[in-house]
Amino acid sequence: MASAPSSTSGIHLPDTARDLVKILVAGPFGVGKTTLIDSVSEIRPLHTEEHLTQASEQVDDLDGVREKATTTVAIDFGRISLPGGVVLYLFGTPGQERFRSLWDDIAYGALGALVLVDSRRIDASFDVLGLVEETGLPYAVAFNAFPDAPRHHTPEQLRAALDLEPGTPMVTCDARDANSSLDALLALVEHLIDRDPPENR
């Protein structure tokens, strides 16, 4: 039978995979989410096509799906197998209010979020930051370094413009560069470690 796309090789989980964790890579369209995920993922970039209304609790029969599922959104994800049986998944998540139920579904059980900001259009990330905060996910902010980004902003100005807490990490990154993407992820994970004692998580 015509089944799944032919190349499934390399996608199955290693036998050593034990603890599967996820981090959201969140931000507006065009900010570099897919680029960052691809730069560090061990599997070829994958995505799911999600029907926005289907993630919602109200859909409970077929008619409902047919009627309401008019919009789809592609959600990219990538995977990094770490030593010691930990497998880290990164989910590229657009943050707009209309994605809310999908957002909640993806965020369920996540360690935290790396919020990407394009410093040429900071306000495009306001919605995402609002969603992350509402969801209660701990997060770090990564300014993705586009060549024509304005350089005259000080970190203090950027922090104020985004209305970030003093403790929220802010880093710059080049999403095309694996090391730079790893550093941004590390800033988030180190923040999670420092943030509060494990019993509060």
Binding site: K22, L82, G84, V86, V189
Partner: peptide, 25 residues
């Protein structure tokens, strides 16, 4: 995704951080 007993294992985050550091080159 995570064995129930390990969900709040204190060193899970540390293992994630160490693993990410090990990937850098």
């Amino acid at each position: 995704p995570i064995p129930t007993a390990d969900r709040f294992e204190p060193d899970l985050l540390k293992r994630v951080a160490d693993g990410l550091r090990a990937l850098k080159h």
